[in-house]
Protein backbone atom coordinates (compact mmCIF):
# COMPACT_ATOMS: atom_id res chain seq x y z
CA UNK A 1 0.00 0.00 0.00
CA UNK A 2 1.89 3.04 -1.18
CA UNK A 3 -1.08 5.30 -1.60
CA UNK A 4 -1.31 8.18 0.81
CA UNK A 5 -5.06 7.93 1.24
CA UNK A 6 -6.28 5.57 3.89
CA UNK A 7 -8.18 2.76 2.22
CA UNK A 8 -11.62 2.03 3.57
CA UNK A 9 -11.71 -1.15 5.65
CA UNK A 10 -13.98 -2.79 3.13
CA UNK A 11 -11.66 -2.12 0.23
CA UNK A 12 -8.69 -3.24 2.25
CA UNK A 13 -10.44 -6.46 3.17
CA UNK A 14 -11.29 -7.04 -0.42
CA UNK A 15 -7.80 -6.55 -1.76
CA UNK A 16 -6.48 -8.68 1.06
CA UNK A 17 -8.67 -11.54 0.02
CA UNK A 18 -7.68 -11.12 -3.58
CA UNK A 19 -4.02 -11.11 -2.70
CA UNK A 20 -4.48 -14.25 -0.64
CA UNK A 21 -6.27 -16.16 -3.34
CA UNK A 22 -3.51 -15.29 -5.74
CA UNK A 23 -0.85 -16.29 -3.27
CA UNK A 24 -2.41 -19.61 -2.30
CA UNK A 25 -2.18 -22.19 -5.01
CA UNK A 26 -5.27 -24.33 -4.56
CA UNK A 27 -4.72 -26.55 -7.56
CA UNK A 28 -3.19 -29.44 -5.57
CA UNK A 29 -6.39 -29.52 -3.53
CA UNK A 30 -8.57 -29.59 -6.59
CA UNK A 31 -6.82 -31.84 -9.02
CA UNK A 32 -7.34 -35.24 -7.34
CA UNK A 33 -11.13 -34.89 -7.57
CA UNK A 34 -11.04 -33.46 -11.05
CA UNK A 35 -8.56 -36.04 -12.25
CA UNK A 36 -10.53 -39.10 -11.09
CA UNK A 37 -13.81 -37.68 -12.35
CA UNK A 38 -12.26 -36.91 -15.69
CA UNK A 39 -11.09 -40.50 -16.02
CA UNK A 40 -14.45 -41.81 -14.81
CA UNK A 41 -16.18 -39.73 -17.43
CA UNK A 42 -13.94 -40.10 -20.42
CA UNK A 43 -12.48 -43.63 -20.33
CA UNK A 44 -15.76 -45.59 -20.14
CA UNK A 45 -17.43 -43.32 -22.64
CA UNK A 46 -14.62 -43.66 -25.18
CA UNK A 47 -14.61 -47.42 -24.62
CA UNK A 48 -18.38 -47.62 -25.06
CA UNK A 49 -18.06 -45.70 -28.29
CA UNK A 50 -15.23 -47.98 -29.41
CA UNK A 51 -17.06 -51.20 -28.54
CA UNK A 52 -20.19 -49.95 -30.23
CA UNK A 53 -18.26 -49.89 -33.51
CA UNK A 54 -16.81 -53.36 -33.00
CA UNK A 55 -18.02 -56.92 -33.31
CA UNK A 56 -17.41 -58.16 -29.82
CA UNK A 57 -19.01 -61.09 -28.03
CA UNK A 58 -17.93 -62.02 -24.53
CA UNK A 59 -18.40 -65.75 -24.98
CA UNK A 60 -17.61 -66.11 -28.69
CA UNK A 61 -14.01 -65.09 -29.48
CA UNK A 62 -14.50 -65.67 -33.21
CA UNK A 63 -16.69 -62.59 -33.37
CA UNK A 64 -14.21 -59.80 -33.95
CA UNK A 65 -13.23 -56.85 -36.14
CA UNK A 66 -14.82 -53.56 -36.99
CA UNK A 67 -18.55 -53.47 -37.33
CA UNK A 68 -18.89 -49.93 -38.60
CA UNK A 69 -22.40 -48.76 -37.85
CA UNK A 70 -23.84 -52.29 -38.01
CA UNK A 71 -24.52 -52.40 -34.29
CA UNK A 72 -26.48 -49.17 -34.54
CA UNK A 73 -28.45 -50.23 -37.61
CA UNK A 74 -29.22 -53.53 -35.96
CA UNK A 75 -30.29 -51.84 -32.72
CA UNK A 76 -32.35 -49.11 -34.33
CA UNK A 77 -34.21 -51.53 -36.62
CA UNK A 78 -34.84 -54.04 -33.82
CA UNK A 79 -38.50 -53.85 -32.79
CA UNK A 80 -37.43 -54.36 -29.17
CA UNK A 81 -35.57 -51.08 -29.33
CA UNK A 82 -38.60 -49.03 -30.27
CA UNK A 83 -40.67 -50.86 -27.64
CA UNK A 84 -38.07 -50.20 -24.98
CA UNK A 85 -37.82 -46.51 -25.85
CA UNK A 86 -41.59 -46.21 -25.72
CA UNK A 87 -41.67 -48.07 -22.39
CA UNK A 88 -38.99 -45.76 -21.04
CA UNK A 89 -40.95 -42.69 -22.08
CA UNK A 90 -44.23 -44.03 -20.66
CA UNK A 91 -42.60 -45.11 -17.41
CA UNK A 92 -40.69 -41.87 -16.89
CA UNK A 93 -43.65 -39.73 -17.95
CA UNK A 94 -46.20 -41.60 -15.86
CA UNK A 95 -44.08 -41.62 -12.74
CA UNK A 96 -43.20 -37.94 -13.18
CA UNK A 97 -46.82 -36.87 -13.47
CA UNK A 98 -47.95 -38.93 -10.50
CA UNK A 99 -45.05 -37.85 -8.28
CA UNK A 100 -45.53 -34.17 -9.07
CA UNK A 101 -49.30 -34.32 -8.50
CA UNK A 102 -49.15 -36.34 -5.29
CA UNK A 103 -45.96 -34.65 -4.14
CA UNK A 104 -47.57 -31.21 -4.41
CA UNK A 105 -50.78 -32.30 -2.67
CA UNK A 106 -48.87 -34.05 0.11
CA UNK A 107 -46.53 -31.09 0.54
CA UNK A 108 -49.49 -28.78 1.05
CA UNK A 109 -51.19 -31.27 3.35
CA UNK A 110 -48.15 -31.86 5.55
CA UNK A 111 -47.49 -28.14 5.68
CA UNK A 112 -50.79 -27.71 7.59
CA UNK A 113 -50.80 -27.75 11.32
CA UNK A 114 -52.06 -31.00 12.81
CA UNK A 115 -51.42 -33.35 15.68
CA UNK A 116 -48.38 -35.53 15.26
CA UNK A 117 -47.43 -33.72 12.09
CA UNK A 118 -43.69 -34.34 12.48
CA UNK A 119 -44.13 -38.07 12.96
CA UNK A 120 -46.60 -38.37 10.08
CA UNK A 121 -44.09 -36.61 7.82
CA UNK A 122 -41.42 -39.17 8.68
CA UNK A 123 -43.70 -41.99 7.63
CA UNK A 124 -44.54 -40.31 4.34
CA UNK A 125 -40.94 -39.82 3.27
CA UNK A 126 -39.85 -43.29 4.44
CA UNK A 127 -40.31 -45.18 1.13
CA UNK A 128 -37.66 -43.00 -0.48
CA UNK A 129 -35.08 -44.61 1.80
CA UNK A 130 -36.16 -48.18 1.07
CA UNK A 131 -33.69 -49.88 -1.22
CA UNK A 132 -35.16 -50.53 -4.69
CA UNK A 133 -34.76 -54.29 -4.50
CA UNK A 134 -36.63 -54.46 -1.19
CA UNK A 135 -39.37 -52.18 -2.49
CA UNK A 136 -39.79 -54.34 -5.56
CA UNK A 137 -39.88 -57.59 -3.58
CA UNK A 138 -42.40 -56.33 -1.03
CA UNK A 139 -44.78 -55.21 -3.75
CA UNK A 140 -44.20 -58.33 -5.80
CA UNK A 141 -44.53 -60.95 -3.07
CA UNK A 142 -46.58 -59.46 -0.28
CA UNK A 143 -48.93 -57.12 -2.11
CA UNK A 144 -49.31 -57.89 -5.82
CA UNK A 145 -48.79 -61.64 -5.77
CA UNK A 146 -51.77 -63.30 -7.53
CA UNK A 147 -52.08 -66.10 -4.96
CA UNK A 148 -50.88 -64.87 -1.58
CA UNK A 149 -50.77 -61.11 -2.12
CA UNK A 150 -52.88 -58.74 -0.10
CA UNK A 151 -54.28 -57.09 -3.23
CA UNK A 152 -55.46 -60.45 -4.57
CA UNK A 153 -57.35 -60.97 -1.33
CA UNK A 154 -58.87 -57.49 -1.40
CA UNK A 155 -59.96 -57.61 -5.04
CA UNK A 156 -61.40 -61.10 -4.76
CA UNK A 157 -63.34 -60.24 -1.58
CA UNK A 158 -64.76 -57.27 -3.46
CA UNK A 159 -65.86 -59.66 -6.17
CA UNK A 160 -63.44 -58.21 -8.71
CA UNK A 161 -61.49 -61.42 -9.16
CA UNK A 162 -57.75 -61.78 -8.89
CA UNK A 163 -55.49 -59.53 -10.89
CA UNK A 164 -52.14 -60.96 -11.93
CA UNK A 165 -50.49 -57.56 -11.90
CA UNK A 166 -47.14 -58.36 -13.44
CA UNK A 167 -48.60 -60.43 -16.26
CA UNK A 168 -51.57 -58.33 -17.29
CA UNK A 169 -50.15 -54.86 -16.68
CA UNK A 170 -46.40 -55.24 -16.16
CA UNK A 171 -45.32 -51.71 -17.01
CA UNK A 172 -48.08 -50.15 -14.91
CA UNK A 173 -47.18 -52.35 -11.95
CA UNK A 174 -43.50 -51.43 -12.18
CA UNK A 175 -44.63 -47.81 -12.44
CA UNK A 176 -46.62 -48.11 -9.20
CA UNK A 177 -43.56 -49.40 -7.34
CA UNK A 178 -41.31 -46.68 -8.73
CA UNK A 179 -43.89 -43.97 -8.02
CA UNK A 180 -44.22 -45.26 -4.46
CA UNK A 181 -40.50 -44.60 -4.02
CA UNK A 182 -40.42 -41.21 -5.71
CA UNK A 183 -43.61 -39.56 -4.43
CA UNK A 184 -41.89 -39.23 -1.02
CA UNK A 185 -38.92 -37.59 -2.73
CA UNK A 186 -41.15 -35.00 -4.39
CA UNK A 187 -43.00 -34.50 -1.11
CA UNK A 188 -39.78 -33.98 0.81
CA UNK A 189 -38.41 -31.41 -1.64
CA UNK A 190 -41.68 -29.53 -2.08
CA UNK A 191 -42.39 -29.55 1.64
CA UNK A 192 -39.04 -27.91 2.20
CA UNK A 193 -39.86 -25.39 -0.49
CA UNK A 194 -43.22 -24.66 1.16
CA UNK A 195 -41.37 -23.43 4.23
CA UNK A 196 -40.13 -20.39 2.33
CA UNK A 197 -43.68 -19.48 1.32
CA UNK A 198 -44.69 -15.97 2.27
CA UNK A 199 -47.13 -16.62 5.15
CA UNK A 200 -48.27 -13.02 5.32
CA UNK A 201 -49.27 -13.09 1.69
CA UNK A 202 -51.26 -16.27 2.33
CA UNK A 203 -52.92 -14.69 5.33
CA UNK A 204 -53.71 -11.51 3.41
CA UNK A 205 -55.25 -13.53 0.60
CA UNK A 206 -57.35 -15.38 3.16
CA UNK A 207 -58.51 -12.14 4.74
CA UNK A 208 -59.47 -10.85 1.30
CA UNK A 209 -61.73 -13.85 0.99
CA UNK A 210 -59.68 -15.95 -1.41
CA UNK A 211 -60.90 -19.54 -1.24
CA UNK A 212 -58.47 -22.38 -0.52
CA UNK A 213 -58.50 -23.45 -4.17
CA UNK A 214 -57.74 -19.93 -5.34
CA UNK A 215 -54.93 -19.59 -2.83
CA UNK A 216 -53.53 -22.92 -4.01
CA UNK A 217 -53.67 -21.91 -7.67
CA UNK A 218 -52.47 -18.35 -7.41
CA UNK A 219 -49.99 -18.45 -4.54
CA UNK A 220 -48.81 -21.97 -3.81
CA UNK A 221 -48.49 -23.31 -7.33
CA UNK A 222 -46.47 -20.32 -8.61
CA UNK A 223 -44.28 -20.53 -5.52
CA UNK A 224 -43.62 -24.23 -6.12
CA UNK A 225 -43.06 -23.87 -9.85
CA UNK A 226 -39.29 -23.76 -9.63
CA UNK A 227 -38.85 -26.54 -7.06
CA UNK A 228 -41.17 -28.66 -9.19
CA UNK A 229 -38.91 -28.09 -12.18
CA UNK A 230 -35.97 -29.22 -10.08
CA UNK A 231 -37.87 -32.30 -8.90
CA UNK A 232 -38.86 -33.18 -12.45
CA UNK A 233 -35.36 -32.92 -13.78
CA UNK A 234 -33.62 -34.79 -10.98
CA UNK A 235 -36.20 -37.54 -11.09
CA UNK A 236 -35.87 -37.76 -14.86
CA UNK A 237 -32.17 -38.49 -14.53
CA UNK A 238 -32.83 -41.30 -12.08
CA UNK A 239 -35.97 -42.62 -13.76
CA UNK A 240 -34.21 -42.94 -17.11
CA UNK A 241 -32.03 -45.51 -15.37
CA UNK A 242 -34.68 -47.65 -13.64
CA UNK A 243 -33.26 -51.12 -13.43
CA UNK A 244 -33.57 -52.97 -10.13
CA UNK A 245 -37.37 -52.75 -9.97
CA UNK A 246 -37.67 -54.41 -13.38
CA UNK A 247 -34.89 -56.89 -12.70
CA UNK A 248 -36.60 -58.10 -9.54
CA UNK A 249 -40.21 -58.14 -10.71
CA UNK A 250 -40.75 -58.86 -14.39
CA UNK A 251 -37.28 -59.26 -15.93
CA UNK A 252 -38.57 -57.03 -18.69
CA UNK A 253 -41.41 -59.35 -19.61
CA UNK A 254 -43.75 -60.71 -20.62
CA UNK A 255 -41.96 -60.45 -23.95
CA UNK A 256 -40.67 -56.89 -24.05
CA UNK A 257 -43.73 -55.46 -22.31
CA UNK A 258 -41.80 -53.95 -19.40
CA UNK A 259 -38.32 -53.65 -20.93
CA UNK A 260 -36.96 -50.14 -20.77
CA UNK A 261 -33.77 -48.94 -22.41
CA UNK A 262 -31.42 -49.77 -19.50
CA UNK A 263 -32.89 -53.24 -19.25
CA UNK A 264 -32.57 -53.80 -23.00
CA UNK A 265 -28.89 -52.84 -22.83
CA UNK A 266 -28.40 -55.16 -19.86
CA UNK A 267 -30.10 -58.00 -21.73
CA UNK A 268 -28.04 -57.43 -24.86
CA UNK A 269 -24.65 -56.91 -23.28
CA UNK A 270 -24.69 -59.06 -20.15
CA UNK A 271 -27.27 -61.78 -20.75
CA UNK A 272 -26.57 -62.22 -24.47
CA UNK A 273 -22.89 -61.25 -24.20
CA UNK A 274 -23.23 -58.96 -27.23
CA UNK A 275 -20.91 -56.17 -26.14
CA UNK A 276 -21.06 -54.34 -29.46
CA UNK A 277 -24.86 -54.18 -29.49
CA UNK A 278 -25.10 -53.25 -25.83
CA UNK A 279 -22.58 -50.48 -26.29
CA UNK A 280 -24.52 -49.02 -29.18
CA UNK A 281 -27.54 -48.95 -26.87
CA UNK A 282 -25.38 -47.30 -24.22
CA UNK A 283 -24.42 -44.49 -26.58
CA UNK A 284 -28.08 -43.93 -27.45
CA UNK A 285 -28.90 -43.77 -23.72
CA UNK A 286 -26.10 -41.27 -23.11
CA UNK A 287 -27.35 -39.04 -25.91
CA UNK A 288 -30.92 -39.12 -24.59
CA UNK A 289 -29.83 -38.40 -21.00
CA UNK A 290 -27.65 -35.52 -22.14
CA UNK A 291 -30.59 -33.77 -23.72
CA UNK A 292 -32.30 -33.80 -20.30
CA UNK A 293 -29.08 -32.99 -18.47
CA UNK A 294 -28.54 -29.91 -20.60
CA UNK A 295 -31.70 -28.33 -19.22
CA UNK A 296 -31.07 -29.49 -15.66
CA UNK A 297 -27.56 -28.10 -15.53
CA UNK A 298 -28.81 -24.78 -16.90
CA UNK A 299 -31.49 -24.56 -14.21
CA UNK A 300 -29.11 -25.37 -11.42
CA UNK A 301 -26.52 -22.94 -12.76
CA UNK A 302 -29.11 -20.18 -12.66
CA UNK A 303 -29.76 -20.97 -9.00
CA UNK A 304 -26.08 -20.90 -8.10
CA UNK A 305 -25.24 -17.65 -6.20
Amino acid sequence: MTTSTIPSPKAAGFSFRRAQSRATDTRPLLWPSIFVLLIWMIVPLVLTLYYSLRNYNLVDPTVTGWAGIDNYTYLLTDPSFLTSVMNTVVLVGGVLISTVVFGTLFAVLFDQEFWGQGAARLFVIAPFFVMPTVAALVWKNLLMHPVNGLFAYITSSLGLGVIDWFTTMPLFSVGIIVAWQWVPFATLILLTAMQSLDREQMEAARMDGAKAVARFRHIIVPHLARPITVVVMIETIFLLGIFAEIYVTTSGGPGDASTNLPFLIYKTAILNSDVGGGSAGGIVAVVLANIVAFFLVRTVARNLD
Binding site: L37, W40, M41, V43, P44, L45, L47, T48, Y51, I237, L240, G241, F243, L261, P262, I265, Y266, A269, I270, V275, G278, S279, G281, G282, I283, A285, V286, L288, A289, N290, V292, A293, L296, V297
Partner: peptide, 12 residues
Protein backbone atom coordinates in the same frame (compact mmCIF):
# COMPACT_ATOMS: atom_id res chain seq x y z
CA UNK B 1 -20.76 -36.11 -14.83
CA UNK B 2 -23.67 -37.30 -12.66
CA UNK B 3 -25.91 -37.03 -15.69
CA UNK B 4 -24.16 -39.89 -17.43
CA UNK B 5 -26.58 -42.82 -17.26
CA UNK B 6 -24.84 -45.74 -15.57
CA UNK B 7 -26.18 -48.12 -18.16
CA UNK B 8 -24.38 -46.20 -20.90
CA UNK B 9 -21.02 -47.14 -19.45
CA UNK B 10 -21.99 -50.52 -17.99
CA UNK B 11 -20.23 -52.54 -20.66
CA UNK B 12 -16.73 -51.00 -20.41
Amino acid sequence: TKMMPAVGVLVP
